[in-house]
């Protein structure tokens, strides 16, 4: 009986404690929907949350993206659903899905914080980016592997670790890249036979375990290996015809003072200065000014950044 009493006690205690957590009113909490990786323990979310709280006295409630169903239901506007105020981690490929969602215009902030190149919609604000490439484990002497075109790279190399275009934004980016480069039928057939994982984390996990030769990833993965792991035994692929950009946007479901303050906090020097070391993506804010070599990242030739065909 004591055991069951203890279980009842834990249950009751948890419910009791939860009352303290309860936000006093809707104005005292800002709901932000983000991906799992954004909420990593040593990531940027904690710092952002603290800075925002200090500035406004408002708590950030992070809503984790648990798949497309949870995102769409939260954005459906149904009565009683806990909907986010801000949606982060949107990629241009997801614009089609967001068409039904009533996002707010953010033109003022776009003028202030977004370089013209990233402008895809008046309702989305870019906040971080990274060129994408392939990484390979190599010794310290080999830093770069050069190819003229994506076609040449695919024809010459084997053991590529890619992501599924339907379940991963990077996968979808690679798919678009391959289509726009007019790859030959043989190359497209070869791509089909490579190792395709449902997510970036899965393919990178395989790569870390020594499976495959090349992994498709953000160039900023190099930063992680160099600065966190202190490991320089990685080579990156440089393709002369150019690399696409992986850009993430945020959208706003309502307009209010607390959202404006969130944007200001996010683009503050304090947060932007540690963005790369905490979130492993480059901040879009100083895209034109930033010299990547300061971050020990190579400069790759970039493809012109295209707006998606579907506009919001």
């Amino acid at each position: 009986m004591k055991f069951f009493a203890l279980c009842f006690f834990i249950f009751g205690l948890s419910l009791g404690c939860s009352k303290k957590e309860k936000p006093s009113s809707d104005n005292k909490v800002l709901r932000v929907m983000v991906s799992k990786s954004f909420l990593a323990k040593d990531g940027i979310s904690k710092l952002l949350e603290d800075s925002y709280y200090k500035k406004t006295g408002i708590k950030i409630l992070w809503l984790e993206d648990r798949g497309i169903f949870s995102v769409l239901t939260r954005l459906s506007g149904k009565k009683g659903i806990v909907a986010p105020d801000i949606l982060m981690g949107i990629t241009p490929e997801q614009i089609e899905i967001l068409k039904k969602v009533a996002l707010q215009e953010v033109i003022t902030f776009k003028k202030k914080y977004e370089p013209e190149i990233f402008n895809v919609s008046s309702k989305l604000l870019a906040y971080n980016y990274a060129p994408v490439t392939f990484l390979k484990k190599a010794n310290e002497q080999v830093r770069v592997l050069k190819y003229k075109t994506l076609e040449e790279f695919i024809q010459k190399e084997d053991g590529l670790l890619l992501q599924n275009k339907e379940t991963s934004s990077l996968g979808s980016l690679f798919y678009d890249w391959a289509l726009n480069q007019n790859l030959s039928a043989a190359s497209l057939e070869k791509i089909k036979n490579q190792n395709i994982s449902p997510s970036w984390s899965k393919s990178y996990g395989l790569f870390s375990q020594g499976v495959g030769n090349f992994v498709f990833t953000d160039l900023t993965s190099l930063y992680y290996h160099h600065h966190v792991e202190k490991n320089h035994d990685y080579a990156y692929v440089s393709i002369e015809s150019g690399h696409p950009l992986h850009v993430e946007y945020m959208g706003f479901l309502n307009s209010s003072k607390k959202i404006d303050l969130f944007i200001e906090t996010l683009f503050s020097d304090k947060i932007q200065s540690v963005w790369l070391s905490k979130n492993y993506m480059l901040p879009t804010y100083d895209y034109e000014k930033k010299d990547l070599s300061e971050q020990s990242l190579p400069r790759l030739k970039l493809l012109p950044y295209k707006s998606p065909q579907n506009k919001l």
Partner: peptide, 14 residues
């Protein structure tokens, strides 16, 4: 799972 989207506090999800 659907109804869990109506609750805000983590404690209720648990």
């Amino acid at each position: 799972f659907y109804f869990s989207l109506f609750v805000e506090q983590k404690i209720f999800s648990t």
